[in-house]
């Protein structure tokens, strides 16, 4: 049986897989990292988004073997070891950007990549366009957009706090 060696959230593992095993299956079923979800079978919903070598990818659309030797970050690996949340996680909580929580891990991982790729910041429209690959059925995206808008300011060091100026 083929083997995959990869580093997930800083921990290196070697895992037996089939040729057809997807990265998301490896994460969920072999490593029991169930924070990464599967919401569709057409690579559209984005519930499975993780970072592979720093870029957001849909873990349902990459073979585990294609990720051999990669550095993978999942939602479980975002917070600091002391529990301090990533600013994007914090922003989602602050702005009520999640309801059922199922799309949330993928949404957060996508949002972080999006912010990192736009150091000059994004408008509301750019944030909405940037979320093309993630579906949410609960929130209407209203608060997700607000959370990302606030988080980008903190992530790029332009603001200390996520709190809206006045509300």
């Amino acid at each position: 049986m083929p083997q995959v060696t990869l580093t997930v959230n800083g921990k290196t593992s070697t895992v037996d897989v089939e040729g057809r095993t997807l990265l998301v299956e490896l994460l969920r079923e072999k490593l029991r990292l169930t924070g990464t979800h599967v919401g569709c079978d057409t690579s559209q919903c984005g519930a499975c988004v993780v970072h592979v070598d720093g870029e957001s990818v849909k873990a349902c659309t990459i073979l585990a073997l294609q990720a051999n030797g990669s550095q993978v970050t999942t939602i479980e690996g975002l917070a600091k070891p002391d529990g301090t949340l990533h600013p994007m996680q914090e922003a989602f909580r602050e702005y009520h950007a999640l309801q059922c929580g199922f799309c949330t891990p993928g949404m957060v991982m996508s949002a972080i990549d999006l912010v990192q790729k736009h150091p000059d910041g994004m408008s509301e429209k750019e944030i909405r366009e940037g979320l093309e690959g993630n579906l949410c059925r609960c929130t209407g995206y209203h608060n997700i957009v607000k959370a990302i808008a606030a988080a980008q300011e903190v992530m790029h060091g332009r603001a200390q706090s996520l709190a809206p100026a006045a509300e």
């Binding site: 990292l33 169930t34 009520h96």
Partner: peptide
């Protein structure tokens, strides 16, 4: 008030049915 359930969902610690083995 901010939601009590958010921390587990934001940390990937939700327990949805398919997460149970």
């Amino acid at each position: 008030v901010k939601r009590k359930e958010d921390l587990r969902f934001l940390s990937g610690r939700g327990q949805y049915t398919d997460d149970i083995n």
